[in-house]
Amino acid sequence: MRGFDFLSPKSLIAALRAIDGKAPTCKLLAGGTNVIPTLRDGTLKPRFVVDLGGIKALNYIREKQGWIQIGALTTIRDLLNSPLIKKKGSLLWEATHIFAGPLVRNRATVGGNLADASPAADTAVPLLALGARVKLRSLKGQRTVPLNRFFAGYQRTVIKPGEIVTEVTFPVPARGRKQSYYKLGRRNAMAISVVSVAVLLQMKGKICTDTAIALGAVAPTPLRVEKAEGILRGKKVDLELVKHCAQAAAKSVKPIDDIRASADYRRTLCEVLVHRMICQSLGLEDAD
């Protein structure tokens, strides 16, 4: 017989108590846009479903001491409509703008998108570049995990039994930071990313003092390409260097062939798009 016990706690503590000890047979619902179809068709057969949607306290976007804090249950729509995100997290804002379609954006949440851990998760790529951290709570306490340590493998995270993602937070990018984001999909809406790229650069004159480059849909998880970042850091950025960096980025990914594109195409596009995004954010003339 199918079916599950449905629990809808109204507070975080109630939710933590509700899931306590039930881990293997319990599924959390945030926006539900990925989980519900699997409950409907029976691919997923949990004994308990805990809907976090009623925890209003986990829906917020605020700035605090130089950090942008986003409650895990904040919907993609709320991010898109947030002047704060548009202004101080524009990389993320751009990703929300082409996240699925409006109907999905009205339900899907940032916490759900990250916890789902799809390699193509749209919010993960800009958040990785922004140096985001994920806050996890359990009855035992709280811990913070940098997003680039959060994904443990294809659709796997470091979330432990009894833990709930409560917040995503990232430092407000310093003034003058350069940034660019691009998602290549097969359609202009309702598209799953073929390759997505987010680039953030801190420049002092022509010298790159810091950078973050994140890629999606080209490895088992969304990832930062640290080797490629290292090529730019501390150097005077010219087209030659950008080229090296883009090549290094393409070398550090592990894409697969799937229905949307081949691994080869994805690898090629990593190079093309990393190159393009760096040039675009710096206003460099792209020689290609």
Partner: peptide
């Protein structure tokens, strides 16, 4: 507006 298939 939401997809009612994505809401229990």
């Amino acid at each position: 507006p939401v997809n009612s298939c994505l809401v229990l």
